[in-house]
Nucleic acid binder design. Structure first.
Lengths: 134, 134
DNA sequence: CTATTTACATATTGACATAGTAGGTAAATA
DNA sequence: TATTTACCTACTATGTCAATATGTAAATAG
């Protein structure tokens, strides 16, 4: 299940994309529009900054803005950055201890196929494809 | 992420399928073959019984067996029974409070599409397709 | 140079789920 | 009657999620 971190991050990115060209957008505005606690969004936004997806400027007139144009972000890279690597099962998570049963696990190929499907789906979607009518 | 409940349930089903025609299979045997605590498997197996996927017989010579042939189970129905309804985000989980933002949520269609993809994938796989070489 | 606005940082918390374990009872067979 | 098996209830350690609380630093307006 995708957590609020990934979902809110995506909504922040969409919000910033929809207000492109308006200079830096204060997090307060995003929080109000999206109906999400600003305090919680700070945590999420910090990770987006660290990932190099957005930049922030302090002080009056400051706020956040995208680093690229919306068409240059994939949903997959945003989600994976926030949620960690896409992995349907623990044994396929990066950094997991290698499973001793991997060679004859009857279900492993199933999870691998599903993870590929998931990755293809989310990396095939771009931020620009999520922008609303507004 | 699929939890051990769903993953182990699938492995139990596969194990029983691979020993079809050998009468009732004691859980002890399954636990040993799969390298999973028998005590924990009891919890999982109870749910499989309640779901009507397998039946158990007590006493000497007892154990578990499938109710249908392996080709008549989909992976999806097994997983959904163990893990709860397939839903990538909380707002799409059955029993979730209806989200007031649903009508203009820019990300909702994304999650809906992904959930459809996921359902199609797992309901398109049958237990018979997971049986090993043995 | 002071007040205000904004980003940026660290620590803590309550609630809940996961992944089991412990210790039994009931049923069936040898 | 002893043994084997399923079946049942309760408990627990650990971790994650979704925040909140309480700051500090930076930039601008006046």
């Amino acid at each position: 299940m995708i957590t609020t971190k990934g979902r809110y991050a995506l909504r922040v990115m969409i919000d910033l994309a929809e207000h492109e060209g308006e200079g830096h957008i204060p997090l307060k505005d995003v929080a109000e529009r999206q109906g999400i606690s600003k305090k919680y969004l700070e945590i999420i936004v910090r990770e987006l900054v660290n990932a190099g997806f957005i930049t922030g400027v302090s002080g009056k007139g400051g706020g956040y803005r995208l680093c690229r144009s919306p068409g240059e972000y994939t949903v997959g890279e945003i989600l994976e950055r926030m949620e960690g690597p896409i992995a349907s099962v623990a044994c396929l998570a990066s950094g997991a201890a290698p499973c001793p049963r991997a060679s004859d696990c009857a279900t492993l190929p199933l999870w691998e196929e599903y993870d590929r499907l998931t990755r293809d789906f989310f990396y095939g979607k771009r931020l620009s494809g999520l922008l609303g009518k507004g």
